[in-house]
Design a protein around this nucleic acid. Structure first.
Lengths: 196, 196
DNA sequence: CCTACCGATCGGTAGG
DNA sequence: CCTACCGATCGGTAGG
């Protein structure tokens, strides 16, 4: 997200406020009248800027999917000679960075996508599966190279991503840890474990 | 008022079907008319057995909270002389066992509790915090005893529970792993890490 | 961006 | 357990 000199467009403002409500109360339980009230306008006025409630959800989900995908590609191509374990670390760092950059959008991305109607619902699931497959592949490569150990890379990838994706639930920007330090701790714990 | 012979079975059936719908579509997006259709009756008829939609959610959430709590107490008292690391393993095994016993209820417990109204909403959060605190304490004890290592037991507990709680999203009863084998793998991965 | 309103659907109830 | 219905609220639109 780059910072622009101009203020948020009305549409972007609607997206932002809606994302906060979707996160807090859930997509289905958030009414357009609540959203309008939070924006200080009447419900009907929203539709000058957007076509439907689901359009907002669609934009949030797919914009964030693109951020995750783009970051992962960068992580994989920035150091093509790096070991699989290192590339996995980079992928984790990227994932954490995207989550932290906008925890509200991340929470909606993670939990509210199922309210997308077809064909977006299926398309989103495909993107998600692709992303998981990349993590799985990195872990499998690490195992083959003797850098990682797990009896089941698919299982390991799911567990790893679940740990990372819990971050929007506890992260507070006031905390003392930087995003990179958080990524470091998560990586250390997941790769090295808790056992002494 | 009435003392029928088997009111509980119909009520339990409503709970079960509702839980499946709440899991699949979300609490807010599930209508009582959908639930009625899934039960093969009319919407109004449901209210002979329950008082409100939220009553179902309340029962699912608090029944499962009790299962988790009871299992944790067992895990802690069954082997009082065991090391903290062993007690943590037992607690993980119990958690996995409760999740697997009813993945639909677990998913609702994990994701739909926020739709509880007060005071249940606050009460539920307290129970959840208690449960997390027990895991945190077990990890902290393990660290003090030199059995575990982590720079932040609270952080470690959150990450660990997040990994475990992803299970309802991927677990399939047709799989070849038994609940105890799944618990074993999760414990191994989380305690020993992925690194060789 | 507002007023005024649409048809559809919501959770829930009365009476049988 | 059904029929018939309640008031409230939903997402969205027309016209200005």
């Amino acid at each position: 997200m780059e910072t622009t000199a101009t203020p948020l467009s009305r549409k972007a403002q609607i997206d932002q406020v809606a994302t906060g409500l979707f996160r807090q109360r859930g997509y289905a339980a958030t009414s357009m009248r609540e959203l309008a009230a939070a924006l200080g306008i009447e419900a009907g006025s929203i539709y000058s800027h957007i076509r439907s409630k689901e359009e907002i959800l669609h934009r949030v989900c797919f914009d964030l999917a693109e951020s995750f995908m783009a970051g992962l590609r960068t992580a994989q191509t920035a150091e093509p000679a790096a070991s699989a374990a290192t590339q996995l670390r980079r992928a984790i760092e990227n994932h954490v960075r995207v989550l932290i950059a906008d925890t509200a959008s991340s929470a909606v991305f993670l939990h509210e996508w199922r309210h997308l109607s077809e064909p977006a619902h299926t398309e989103f699931q495909h993107l998600r599966q692709q992303y998981e497959a990349e993590f799985r592949a990195l872990i499998a490569q690490g195992v083959q190279a003797g850098e990682l150990y797990t009896p089941d890379p698919a299982f390991a990838a799911l567990t790893l991503l679940a740990s990372l994706n819990w971050l929007p639930n506890w992260y507070r920007p006031e905390g003392t840890l930087t995003p990179d330090q958080i990524a470091q701790r998560l990586t250390d714990q997941l790769l090295d474990g808790l056992a002494y």
